[in-house]
Amino acid sequence: MRILIGVAERGAPELLAELDRLVPLSGSELVLVHVIDNGARGEMDLARGRLLPRPMPKHRLRAIGDAERRAAEVALDEVATVAKSLGALPEALSAEGEPGRVVSRLAEERSCDLVAVAARVDREHERPGPHSVGHSARFVLDHSPRPVLLLRGPVAIT
């Protein structure tokens, strides 16, 4: 079985452990995808020529990009290690774009049998109910051509 897993900066190992409880991962191919969200770049253009400083000096943008990439690498390494310890065969992918859109597209391109997403990132005690599914997970639920498993609790997808 090939499973695509959305990996965020936080909580991905917990997501994997939870998934393994429901769908034993030993022997499965895992496509671990981390997406750096750049969906709001249009906002940046809006900001150009506004009042104070053209909002982001280039060196600052570079610093942020470096920090994001470094965090993505660490998160992917961390979750790949956990995947191997569970007997799975991980493949790590890093991308930029809107996370929900990229995850849905890759699920199709990689012919995944299942997509696993966490309902929300960052909220440790989110209860089921209105607004309990984050923007990116909601997009995957709506648009993924492959079956989707929505996980709750302190787990994460960007």
């Binding site: 750049n38 969906g39 709001a40 906002e43 996370p99």
Partner: peptide, 9 residues
């Protein structure tokens, strides 16, 4: 504008 640019919803 700055935080939206960085994907924070």
């Amino acid at each position: 504008v700055i935080v939206r640019r960085h994907g924070v919803q």
